[in-house]
Simulated scan of single mutants.
Amino acid sequence: MSKEDRPIRNRRGHGRGRTQDGKPNPIDVHVGMRVRLRRTLMGMSQEKLGELIGLTFQQVQKYERGANRVGASRLYDLSRVLEVPVGFFFDDMPDEITGRSPASGVTDTPDYKPDEDEMHKRETLELVRAYYRISDPRLRRNLFDLMKSLGDGSDAD
């Protein structure tokens, strides 16, 4: 068996779900980012989420960073607590990481940096939460229209 055909050994930095260079699998990073997105949109702390699924907040942090893989039963628990279907955690996965699991044989997995995406920044999440706390639908729609009109002229920076 050639070196390229050998399975990745289960050692620190080179274990299951890690890329050849020891980085977290980009799919695990995406799932963790989706956990963080939903938790933040619900206004839930890492500590509260951990309490509800029997983990410490540090374990939740590791899931959210993709440092720890989320097993099937834990993913199911997360979907129930966060009130989303399991498929939610895989939604919006960028094309550049789809199918780039170490098991796929692809070794040129790009660095996946979800925090560089405006849709996953804390400011965006807080803005969306605040927007949906506006109970008057007309006021919410007026704010939406205002923000769209302000944004249309901001591309000239």
Results as ranks from 00 to 15, higher is better:
Thr107Lys: 00
Lys62Cys: 03
Phe90Lys: 05
Lys121Gln: 15
Pro114Phe: 02
His30Glu: 08
Ser101Lys: 01
Asp136Val: 06
Met147Pro: 01
Leu143Ile: 15
Arg12Trp: 07
Val81Phe: 07
Tyr63Gln: 04
Gly13Arg: 02
Gly50Arg: 12
Val84His: 10
Ile8Cys: 08
Arg80Glu: 13
Leu82Thr: 03
Tyr112Lys: 06
Val70Gln: 03
Met42Gln: 14
Gly50Trp: 08
Leu125Val: 10
Ala67Pro: 00
Val106Cys: 00
Val81Gln: 11
Asp77Asn: 09
Asp21Tyr: 00
Arg38Val: 08
Thr109Gln: 14
Arg74Ala: 04
Met44Leu: 13
Tyr63Asp: 04
Lys3Gly: 00
Lys113Asp: 14
Lys121Val: 06
Thr98Cys: 12
Gly87Asp: 15
Leu125Ile: 11
Met44Val: 04
Leu78Trp: 05
Arg16Trp: 04
Tyr63Ala: 01
Asn25Lys: 04
Asp28Arg: 06
Met147Asp: 03
Arg16Met: 05
Ser45Pro: 04
Glu123Trp: 02
Gly50Gln: 10
Arg80Gly: 02
His120Asn: 15
Ser2Phe: 00
Phe90Gly: 05
Leu78Ser: 03
Asp77Ser: 12
Glu47Trp: 04
Leu41Arg: 04
Glu51Lys: 12
Glu96Trp: 06
Tyr112Val: 05
Arg140His: 07
Val128His: 04
Tyr112Met: 05
Pro137Arg: 03
Ser149Asp: 14
Pro7Phe: 09
Gly43Trp: 10
Leu52Ile: 06
Gly17Arg: 00
Ser2Cys: 03
Val81Cys: 06
Ile8Ser: 10
Gly71Ile: 03
Asn68Phe: 08
Arg16Gln: 09
Met44Ala: 05
Lys62Asp: 08
Arg100Asp: 00
Glu96Thr: 00
Gly22Glu: 01
Gly151Trp: 10
Phe88Arg: 06
Glu126Tyr: 09
Met33Val: 11
Leu78Asp: 04
Asp92Lys: 12
Leu49Tyr: 10
Tyr76Gln: 14
Arg69Asp: 02
Asp92Leu: 10
Pro114Asp: 03
Gln46Phe: 02
Glu51Trp: 10
Glu123Gly: 01
His120Met: 12
Pro94Asn: 06
Glu96Gly: 00
Arg80Leu: 13
Asp77Ala: 12
Asp92Thr: 03
Glu47Ile: 07
Arg36Tyr: 09
Asp21Leu: 01
Asp95Pro: 02
Arg122Asn: 11
Gln61Pro: 02
Tyr132Glu: 08
Ser104Trp: 05
Met33Arg: 12
Tyr131Glu: 04
Ser2Asn: 13
Asp91Cys: 02
Glu123Gln: 13
Lys148Leu: 11
Asp5Ala: 11
Asn10Asp: 15
Ile27Val: 13
Arg9Phe: 13
Met93Tyr: 02
Lys113Ala: 11
Tyr76Leu: 14
Ser73Ile: 11
Leu125His: 12
Lys23Leu: 04
Leu75Asn: 05
Leu49Trp: 08
Glu118Gly: 00
Asp136Arg: 12
Gly32Ala: 11
Ser2Ala: 12
Asn10Ala: 10
Gly71Met: 07
Val70Pro: 01
Leu49Thr: 12
Tyr76Gly: 01
Asp145His: 12
Ile53Tyr: 10
Gly71Lys: 07
